[in-house]
Amino acid sequence: MNREQISLRNENYGKKIRAIFDNPLVMNLMPLIGFLIVLVVFTILTKGKIIQPTNINLILGQVYVLMIAATGVFMIMTVGGIDFSQGSILGFSSIIISWVSHYNIVLAVICGILGGAVMGAVNGFFHVRFRIASFIVTICTMYLFRGLCEYITTTGPVAASVGVVVLNKTWLKMLLTLIVLAIGFFTFTFTRIGFDLKAIGASENAARFSGSRPAFSKFMVFVTAGALTGFASFLNVMRVGSITGTAGTQMETQILIALVLGGMPINGGSKARFTNIIIGVLTYSVLQTSLPMVFTQSATQQLVQGIIFLIVVALTMDRKNIRVIK
């Protein structure tokens, strides 16, 4: 074969491979395939340790808080926004819950949710009212809320009442997470809210001319995300028992990475699927738990983690709708 034929053949292979990736079924399944590959690879690398019951429990232990908080951020990303303040919101709501839990646990949960909602409302208000890009607003409030956490905990960590800590049961946490996911899934798939959010993410202007209310919806999405993280804080307090000023640090990046691993389109819009949350959080948690088993040094862990994220995202992300890379 001469060079031209080879290049033609290679081009044809390229086309065929692209055609496979462009198939909508394959595209929807990519994140799931990614999850399975990660699972299989790490089962082999850890010589099966990762699928032993104790480790599965360890993985699930991380999943609950992340899954609930990611549900809120999923909605924010569907309308095309992003939120970096979720970790700080988790920290502050956790402090509120710990405080109030000494009086009444139900009241503590309600206060935690309300606190999260108020912080989300601050995000939404500045984003919608002053038309500031959501990533700017939430980077600012990330520091703002974190500052509040540190300020309150200067004299020492805030301990929750024992009543909360004894609730730290796997079945309860799993039940609460499933309830949140079920409500989220139902709202997103079977009410007009999901349709509106997707339309707004795809084209805010066109959505407005179709009877959606972009400004109101965007504000409400931030409030809801805050409230959900407020609720996730309750599960966080159960597990930790006592809250320091750094509680929830880095959670915002964990959520975003998990969603992207799950196939969430960065710019939001019609291609957002509720399953992005579940698959993404599971993939992330498997990676998080198994890396220390394979690589003992934490520096190596971070390095490998970064490389794996890049590879998975590069392979699974749907770029069709992204014209401008920001």
Binding site: A199, S203, F209, S270
Partner: peptide
């Protein structure tokens, strides 16, 4: 393309939205 229809969305979603 900007005001009448949601371009990056299906025909179904566009017709049903209002």
């Amino acid at each position: 393309d900007n005001e009448s229809i949601v371009l990056e969305s299906s025909i179904r979603d566009n017709i049903t939205l209002p």
